[in-house]
Design a protein around this nucleic acid. Structure first.
Lengths: 227, 227
DNA sequence: ACCTGAACACCGTTCAAGT
DNA sequence: ACCTGAACACCGTTCAAGT
């Protein structure tokens, strides 16, 4: 009798098992995060208010505070979800390049970063606006460090295989990250049109800029053209 | 009688001529901008409220709206002042490099940008957080364009003098800007310690990263070491 | 001409009370 | 266990009224 199916489920019969905290129509925590993303897309990051998010979801202004201690915590959760997807995007690009040289895999990380950032400008914006999220007190820092460690490994491999022009390996990594991060910021800040580039071409151009750098630290001088 | 000096100046006898709008102790507009900068330094950009700025200066909550139509307008004024100084910093570095090659003058713009950004992180933060300022509806855009035009001129000169490795000149500029902008962001976001670099060495390291790039687009292959 | 005081519609957050 | 309603101290902004 105890393991009989309860008949009290007067809600929806099709219940997703992934949802944990249930309220009157599913998973409030997830619903709040999604609504927050939509609100950012609509009105911008600064316009996000917990009350507005609550209203969008259809709960009282106090309800979100059962799941997020603070407005910052809500936005940090959005950032964490975003970084999860960014990590997946980079992993995909990296997997596709698994047979290539360490330097090309290093490049693949940059390409994955650019591809994801350009395709998900809102999420990228949340990740990179640290004044509004709790970067240190979350898994964002350690997640980010994982990528950096991978970059370092690939760089060391590339150096030991003689693929790199002699120079400071750490500096190469800083340069690559600065460049790729700067390109993504230029895109979401709408700076590409100022350079006479249509927005559609921004990703392709950014990858070419990245390749310019990769070639410049590469030992293979002949490796230019359609890399 | 009409051009006689009025005796009604019961305020301060030592009156700066640069100040325009006078209130009970000088120039409210300027006082608000300064207080706003201090508030950002103390509590961060997100914590800026017009009321708090007004309280710091000692006026009523409504007083600032006589000078700035909106909170955004106040922060935009801070950004404009910041960019004025950034422009001056770049002009200084550029003047010091007036005798050098176009490519080295191009580099000087980057160095000036880095130097100023690292020395004035708060102001740089305001300039670069476009969601909180009115970038288009201000002189920020056109001011910024001036620097970009100068960069383009120098790049064209460098190319016609045979100083550049063959390649897309526009791409070189985008790469340089992305790199320099990314380095500044990495600095204010506190990313340098993650790369094992002390904060004091961040500027020097950033300039070296910039030089790495300059050398890579330069025709003079032998131009390395202590550039 | 420039500022104040009071008001309006918001906001984040807390907490007792409901189911 | 999860949510509501009311409350508190804030906020941006407006506007009539003061000097």
């Amino acid at each position: 009798m105890s393991d009989a199916a309860p008949k009290k489920t007067s809600q929806k019969p099709t219940r997703k098992e992934a949802t944990s905290r249930a309220y009157h129509h599913g998973d409030l925590r997830k619903a709040l995060i999604d609504a927050c993303v939509h609100l950012i897309e609509d009105k911008g990051l600064e316009a996000v208010s917990v009350r507005e998010v609550a209203k969008l979801v259809g709960v009282s202004p106090a309800a979100p505070f059962r799941h997020f201690a603070t407005r910052t915590a809500l936005l940090t959760a959005v950032a964490e979800e975003a970084q999860e997807r960014l990590g997946a995007s980079i992993a995909d690009t990296l997997r596709a390049a698994a047979q290539e040289t360490p330097l090309m895999q290093f490049r693949a990380i940059g390409v994955g970063f650019l591809r994801w950032s350009f395709a998900n400008p809102t999420h990228f914006q949340v990740i990179s606006s640290r004044s509004v999220i709790d970067y240190e007190g979350s898994r964002l820092r350690s997640r980010n460090d994982l990528i950096r460690v991978r970059m370092n490994e690939l760089m060391c491999d590339a150096a030991s295989q003689g693929l790199l022009r002699p120079g400071d390996i750490k500096r190469y990594q800083i340069a690559a990250r600065a460049m790729v991060y700067g390109l993504a910021r230029m895109y979401i800040d709408g700076q590409f049109p100022s350079w006479g580039l249509p927005v559609e071409g921004a990703l392709a151009e950014s990858i070419k800029v990245l390749d310019l750098f990769i070639v410049s630290i590469s030992m293979a001088v002949a490796l230019d053209g359609n890399l």
